[in-house]
Amino acid sequence: MASNQATKTEGTEHEAAPILQQMCIFATVLFVSSLISPLFPKSFPVPTPVIGLVLMYVLLASHIIKLYQVEKMADFLISLIAFLFVPSGVQMANSLNVFTDDGAMTGVMLIVTIILATIILLVVIAYTTAGFMAISRKVFHKSTDVE
């Protein structure tokens, strides 16, 4: 709990860093990640943003970057995510033929399967986690309270 308190106050102690500095940190992390990404073999792709997320987390955890230096930019970008996804959604205009190539029936079945797969992933992962949490609680007597 103590470490949590520390991270929480860390952000409010300082005034937020100037927005250009925050952008520069993001740009640097992305650039370095883009240099690391091609080092992974073709059969084991790890894209730039995924490396960037890990790199940013490592930099924060090792206190090289402080929360106040990236917090504002990060909150802003996260609040934009749904909007930033609009071009990806509209991109489907380019490949609607994927759903009609093998006949309308296959297309409908494909969409139904994708809807079900989305729900399956959410529910199975959530219930599996609840299961492992219950094991930790009952078998190893570990407190699983958060918040």
């Binding site: 740009a27 960037g52 997320l53 940013m56 917090e71 990060a74 970008l77 930033l84 990806s88």
Partner: peptide, 15 residues
């Protein structure tokens, strides 16, 4: 901009 937005999730993770 999904690139920087993705790495931004390191912040809620670290919090």
């Amino acid at each position: 901009f999904l690139n920087p937005a993705t790495i931004a999730f390191a912040i809620p993770l670290y919090r």
